[in-house]
């Protein structure tokens, strides 16, 4: 580590709390959201500097890309309710709660053993038993596949919950006014590029940083762009969409449960097939994660409904 490297890390370490301070003290919600997106960019850089490339990829895709768009899409629904500033007692209560959590986390961190090797060695020694060559993929889909299985289920439930509470005024949009020409040509480039890059990241995931979550969020970003620009109507719950939503979880459950029939343990993939199976699972998860993420977005805001077609919306 040379002086330049140290300074680089120092600047990153200084930027993060600076921006975070900006987020919490911003005068209005929209400013806070904008700064939060900036925070996402910088934390992706910080993860990259920490050699946590998988985390950096997720932060870049989910943290700064999709979360920003999601927060912005929630803005019209939340902002009208925020006219009145919350009471001092409430603010003090929330502040005390957060301070408590922070102190608790800090104390826990300090009490961790200073030099713990963690499980990294164990993973690397046994990686040949898993279906992947990249340790993180091996942990996510094989050694700790149980966690990932439940996470995917949580995502699916979250998506269903969003469908349940989505406001009726944010009905699925329609193909609306013709998209402007630059926008149309951009989308013509974005769609194939997203598909290729998502495929590339899934492929990378078997032996290097990458995988279903990152690839799924790129596809979702593309889908959200199509939907928000009105180029495509918002997702309706057709049979195909439903199938795509549950595909990842269904394949995961099938793969996890199949070994039980042969008297093995849950998630104990048959050895010679582990590689291809994990890859197929990643592909299925990519599709489902992408569709699930898209369902989080309300779609293009409704334009005034032409009276003749008012009846056909759900």
């Amino acid at each position: 580590m040379s002086l330049v490297d140290w300074t680089l890390d120092g600047v990153l370490a200084a930027l993060l709390p600076l921006i975070a301070w900006g987020v919490v003290t911003a005068a209005s919600l929209d400013k806070a959201i904008m700064l939060f997106i900036v925070l996402g960019f910088v934390s992706a850089l910080a993860w990259a500097r920490l050699d946590a490339i998988d985390v950096a990829l997720v932060e870049a895709a989910v943290g700064s890309g999709l979360t920003g768009a999601l927060l912005l899409s929630a803005l019209p629904a939340i902002q009208p309710r925020l006219r009145r500033p919350s009471s001092l007692a409430r603010r003090a209560g929330v502040g005390a709660l957060l301070a408590g959590i922070t102190i608790w986390l800090g104390v826990t961190t300090l009490r961790l053993p200073a030099r713990s090797g963690g499980l990294a060695e164990l993973v690397c020694e046994n990686i040949e038993q898993s279906g992947a060559l990249h340790p993180i993929t091996a942990v996510l889909l094989d050694f700790r596949g149980y966690d990932t299985l439940i996470e995917v289920a949580v995502l699916l439930v979250a998506s269903l919950a969003v469908r349940a509470v989505q406001r009726p005024r944010l009905r699925p949009g329609r193909r609306g006014e013709p998209t402007s020409e630059p926008l149309a040509s951009f989308l013509n480039l974005l769609v194939p590029a997203s598909i290729v890059i998502a495929g590339f990241l899934v492929w990378e995931g078997s032996h290097a940083p990458g995988g279903a979550f990152q690839a799924g969020s790129i596809l979702a970003g593309c889908g959200v762009s199509l939907q928000l620009t009105g180029e495509r109507p918002a997702l309706r719950m057709t049979l195909r969409v439903r199938a795509a939503l549950v595909l990842g979880l269904a394949v995961f459950v099938a793969l996890a449960g199949a070994p039980l029939l042969r008297g093995h343990d849950l998630l104990d993939y048959p050895r010679p097939w582990a590689g291809p199976l994990v890859f197929a699972l990643e592909l299925a998860l990519t599709v489902s994660i992408a569709v699930i993420l898209v369902t989080f977005f309300p779609g293009a805001p409704d334009r005034p409904e032409p009276p003749a077609r008012a009846a056909d919306s759900p």
Binding site: S180, P182, L183, F186, L189, A193
Partner: peptide, 17 residues
């Protein structure tokens, strides 16, 4: 090159929007 072109295209579209 691909990365540059992607940024170029999105930045010009973003500016326009």
């Amino acid at each position: 090159g691909v990365i540059w072109v992607l940024v170029l295209v999105s930045s010009s579209l973003s500016s326009q929007l």
